[in-house]
Design a protein around this nucleic acid. Sequence first.
DNA 1: TATGTTATGTAAACAATGTTCAGTAAAATA
DNA 2: TATTTTACTGAACATTGTTTACATAACATA
Lengths: 202, 202
Amino acid sequence: MGIRERREREKAELRQRILDAAQHLITEEGFAAMTMRRLAEQIEYSPASIYLHFKSREEIARELCELGCGKLLSKMQKAVAGKDAAGRIHALGQAYVRFGLENPETYRLIFMEDEAYMAAAFGNQSEKSAANQAGDLLLGAVQEYLKSIRRRQKAQEVVQLLWATLHGIVSLHLSCTGFQGAPPEELAALATGLVVKGLAGG
Amino acid sequence: MGIRERREREKAELRQRILDAAQHLITEEGFAAMTMRRLAEQIEYSPASIYLHFKSREEIARELCELGCGKLLSKMQKAVAGKDAAGRIHALGQAYVRFGLENPETYRLIFMEDEAYMAAAFGNQSEKSAANQAGDLLLGAVQEYLKSIRRRQKAQEVVQLLWATLHGIVSLHLSCTGFQGAPPEELAALATGLVVKGLAGG
DNA sequence: TATGTTATGTAAACAATGTTCAGTAAAATA
DNA sequence: TATTTTACTGAACATTGTTTACATAACATA
């Protein structure tokens, strides 16, 4: 009899509805607006019911972070298609920055809200998480580029620098809303360009 | 009669004690630990009394941010003494990163806790805030360097990129506590070095 | 010295948060 | 139909930041 199957399906559907509502609230009004009571209101259940599907508010956030990282990874994967090493570095930078601009609240949640979320994204180093795979994309491009210019330089260090730079560009843009300088895409292009040139020359 | 003077002095002293206690709590246990009740406990007054000196918890935080920015500025000012343009860029990067490492919770508060604090730090563009002065230090060095290599490039853009990069290095280091890569000073040196070389070459 | 005024301080309450738990109603099973 | 399991919720708890009505002490004035 398919009764159990049906109930499991219903349960999974409700869980998904919670996640959808959470994502929606965060996208529209930011993480702080995603309270358990507003979430409950959205799905038309009591607040306590949410705890039948998630251990805590933080667990919901963590799951959304993983989904967000997946989205970022897929953007970056599409960006590298059919390009040489330097071109991939540039394209990855643009993809990263655009993800941040198009999904500001999701970006905030993953990288700026709580170190725990970010640590979780990079944490599972045994099973390659989406964030780690994104890092590998960057690492591959940098390694190939360093090889092509016959330069001995720790690729990991360059990757860390690039990621930090891109993160800095996005996070300052999202935080300093008043201050309007050069657009993030332009800064990212300048950054990747200078890294590429700087490594080649000298 | 010096009665009014004495009372004003006492009031200012209590206000300062609140700030000190707040700074201490933040330094030791982070911003979240700085609750009005714990603050009241520290100064041995009731929570409501704090509101006789500050409009809100946020106002206390903002004032600590300004103090923090002043500290950062003074570090950066010392760093540039008696150096050429490229040397100043390097030294400013090192000073910035070290400030973040030595005052992690203060750095968090200013740049990572709430965009409002950071916006406030950069906001008063009429009266030059400490943060703005720090930016000017960087701008001066970059302008002089660009001139010395006869390169036409928007100095403001390079400053933005440098600041974003340094912020990215520090904030990723503070957030990704688990992940241990290259030390921030090394990354900052690499960053400033690549910018300097990248601008010169090509 | 007595009285009025002002500054100082606090207890208690309010609204909002995440979370827990006892209890209930419904559904599945026997 | 009776029993057990599951799904669900109302009410409460411990926290927050903040406000308000009230008390008290210190001061100024007559």
